[in-house]
């Protein structure tokens, strides 16, 4: 079970308090009707699904109830950082320097 640091509650909490929300930073188009079928399919269905670092959404469902993003490694499950919804995608290099990896 993961221990996930909620950036609002500012403490690590067990995974079962959270709900996974899929890949982060997939923005809905401001003009969805103007999208081509391929672009709409990409938004709806295609995912990066990397073997490595993954930016992903979580909701602290049984805690503060709020959405935030996490950067987690999909092989080691290590979480090197979480940040509040709406904040820009952090630079992975910075995290890795701080985390010493």
């Amino acid at each position: 079970m993961l221990l996930i640091p909620c950036p609002y509650c500012e403490e690590p909490r067990p995974e079962i308090e959270f709900r996974y929300g899929g890949e982060a930073h997939i923005a809905r188009s401001a003009d969805p009707t103007g999208l081509s079928d391929a672009a709409l399919a990409d938004y709806l269905y295609f995912r990066s699904n990397p073997k490595g670092w993954h930016y992903e959404r979580w909701q602290h469902q049984s805690g503060c109830g709020r959405f935030f993003n996490a950067v987690r490694h999909t092989v080691t499950d290590r979480i090197i950082g979480t940040y509040k919804a709406g904040e820009p995608k952090p630079d992975l290099a910075l995290y890795r320097v701080r985390a010493g990896s």
């Binding site: 079970m1 995974e15 890949e23 993954h54 999909t74």
Partner: peptide, 13 residues
């Protein structure tokens, strides 16, 4: 498990 992962083991819960 609820989340994308390539770790060939699932959560105990």
């Amino acid at each position: 498990d609820a989340y994308v992962s390539y770790a060939q083991a699932g959560g105990l819960h």
